[in-house]
Nucleic acid binder design. Structure first.
Lengths: 237, 237
DNA sequence: GAGTGGTCTAGACCACGTT
DNA sequence: ACGTGGTCTAGACCACTCA
């Protein structure tokens, strides 16, 4: 199923995580991987480049590839990952409350965010994320109903992404995120446990499938003290 | 000087920006670029992959490569870019006020962030960024003095990065950022025009050179209404 | 000089989308 | 059937680091 370089990529991550390749250690050279896996150099290089892009290693010409301390930088919320995936990785005691789940009739003002003409319908899903008993995050998601024809309460409580990728077989491709800090709305105050905070961190994003079609617009509103976003960036020219 | 694929990468960006390759248009195929530039397919693919990584295009197997609407998503503050570079691109009327510029003696509590032993010195630079007459951002930077031996007021008012990359010839490699929202400190209130806001958006980052050495730790504190962070992410496996 | 990663080539086969 | 991008190979030369 998977390509050779993805397998190697996965193997190396596993070995980094289990400590076979500890932090700051030098990874085996490209030629070692070639002979160990019986693959060509280019294939090894593809795997190593992926690792580098995602912040697992860095490579130094003439010296080798070295394991970076990825834990130092907490958790890569930066990538494309759902609340469910994150909660599982971090072992959070979390709960999702479905607040709204409806097919919004044509003409809603969300149409423009999904680049849809006005005769189309949109799934509107509002979910409240509870962590350690406190309502911390309000997720407002809008889906193109032509791509996601059916949504149920069960799907929304589990993971919409798992459903979309698993059941529907759609391939998530890329997203754009924008993070701002805004005064909290009446809605935020009603639905979240805001305590004394009067602002929220807002992550707005559009998510596209591999073929480029826009299928989701979402707004994720976080109580500020519980919000953290981490990002790994490389200088590219 | 530059490699072939970087040249092609730059050429294509230029053509996207000037409109020769408009948004949503199909880019010429890989084989067109091969014959046009007289280079091999792999070299073309390297350029296209870079464009894809950086959100300029997306590729669809069997169809082609298409120009994404990069402007839709504002400005890629996500990458590694300095305030000066950003202000220039956005044509902001900005000003930098140097608040602190000193060589901090050994034993400061910033040592740990720079992974330095206690006998080393650190450059400490506090700058206030003013936009349209308002003090909006407080940048607190700490540099490893072994890598950046000398800093002057002039350098800090212009661009430290320009100095480091241009004069010192160091190569910025990668960084980790972490964004949080925090109550504003006394210092924030004194140095910034906070108006009625009582929180700040804080971007903490470590910046490494190409060889992996850690040379900067910084904390950038923004008035919340003027803060925006954008990010382009791909789902990688 | 030996070992390492960086660039580049030429050619192969595959999977996908369109016609 | 044809054109597209995705994967993979084998081999070449270069630049850099280190003993």
């Amino acid at each position: 199923m998977n390509s050779k370089y993805i397998s190697l990529y996965g193997d190396i991550i596993a070995k980094i995580e289990e400590g076979t390749f500890p932090v700051n250690a030098k990874l085996p050279s490209e030629s070692s991987f070639m002979s160990e896996y019986g693959i060509s150099r280019d294939t090894v290089r593809k795997a190593l480049n992926l690792l580098e892009q995602n912040g697992y290693i860095h490579k130094i010409k003439g010296k080798g590839s070295f394991v970076l301390d990825i834990n130092k930088f907490n958790f890569p919320v930066a990538g494309l990952i759902s609340f469910k995936e994150m909660a599982e990785k971090l072992n959070l005691h979390s709960k999702t409350i479905i607040h709204t789940l409806e097919l919004e009739s044509p003409g809603s003002n969300m149409m423009k965010h999904l680049d849809l003409t006005n005769d189309k319908e949109i799934w509107k899903v509002f979910r409240i994320r509870q962590i350690n008993g406190k309502k911390i995050i309000l997720d407002k998601d809008y889906f193109n109903s032509e791509l996601v024809p059916k949504l149920t309460k069960e799907i929304c409580e589990d993971s919409i992404y798992r459903y979309i990728e698993g059941e529907l077989g759609l391939q998530i491709g890329f997203s754009n995120k924008e993070i701002t800090v805004e005064p909290c709305s009446e809605e935020d105050e009603q639905l979240l446990d805001m305590e004394d905070y009067d602002m929220v961190a807002v992550v707005r994003s559009t998510v596209h499938l591999m073929d480029g079609s826009l299928f989701q617009y979402s707004e994720s509103r976080h109580r500020p003290d519980k919000f953290k976003f981490t990002d790994f960036a490389r200088r590219t020219w």
